[in-house]
């Protein structure tokens, strides 16, 4: 039998993209603003999220999904904030996919939420390819990681909507060159907003929290109190 060519034009991750589109529509309908936190292991996603849930939780309904290869340690830590938390154990999978988010949300009343945070698996490569239906993708970058991190992982920085510099309170102790880090981020993603943060000391999370509230207000102008 002779060979023939079949034109296809099919995105390989179309299934994930379609599920993500469905999730995005659900989130939008429910009025919940969704943030996907990505970073390498140890950049401080859980510490940032712990403080964020406590601070935002005073005036808003917040919840989080936490992805890890194994253990429920992060979920246990985050549950101390009082916010509803669900752990997604990915087993050997190095990233979260839209399907896992949809499954983890079963039984949750999204209408009751203002913010939903998704803590991705600590990995600067794989999560870049998977849309989870989020409104905002935040890449965390700690001062201990080296200023050239954005140049080593351009795809994830390029796919992000904001970069959060974490552990900025110890920048001096590790000779972190902030100007160089900012330069490198902007080389791979011109114009990306960059926020300083510390989960333990000044300047705290003020810039990050204000950014989140502004973005939510932009996404849901009618439902956010003035």
């Amino acid at each position: 039998m002779s060979a023939r060519i079949l034109e296809v034009r099919h995105g390989i991750l179309k299934k994930n993209d379609e599920l993500a589109r469905g999730l995005r529509a659900r989130f939008r309908e429910a009025g919940v603003f969704v943030v996907n936190l990505v970073s390498g292991p140890g950049a401080g996603k859980t510490a940032l999220l712990e403080k964020t849930l406590s601070a935002l939780g005073k005036d808003h309904a917040v919840a989080a999904l936490v992805g890890d290869l194994a253990t429920e340690n992060d979920a246990t830590r985050l549950a101390r904030s009082g916010a509803p938390i669900r752990q997604i154990s990915t087993g050997t999978t190095c990233h979260l996919e839209a399907q896992m988010i949809g499954d983890a949300l079963a039984g949750w009343d999204l209408d009751a939420l203002d913010f939903l945070f998704i803590e991705n698996v600590g990995n600067l490569v794989c999560p870049a390819s998977y849309d989870l239906g989020e409104d905002l993708r935040a890449v965390l970058f700690s001062v201990t990681e080296g200023e050239d991190k954005p140049l080593k992982y351009p795809t994830i920085f390029n796919s992000a909507d904001v970069a959060v510099l974490t552990k900025i309170d110890i920048a001096g102790a590790v000779d972190f060159d902030r100007a160089l880090a900012v330069h490198n981020i902007h080389e791979v993603r011109p114009g990306l907003p960059i926020l300083d943060s510390s989960a333990r000391a000044e300047p705290g999370l003020d810039a990050w929290l204000a950014f989140l509230k502004t973005k939510r207000a932009e996404a849901f102008p009618a439902t956010t109190p003035a």
Binding site: I5, L6, R9, G11, I12, P190, G191
Partner: peptide, 18 residues
């Protein structure tokens, strides 16, 4: 500088030989 990306995120099958 420009973040206006027109190509480079593709991940797709274009055709199959069957």
């Amino acid at each position: 500088p420009s973040a206006d990306i027109r190509q480079g995120k593709e991940l797709e099958i274009t055709s199959l030989e069957i």
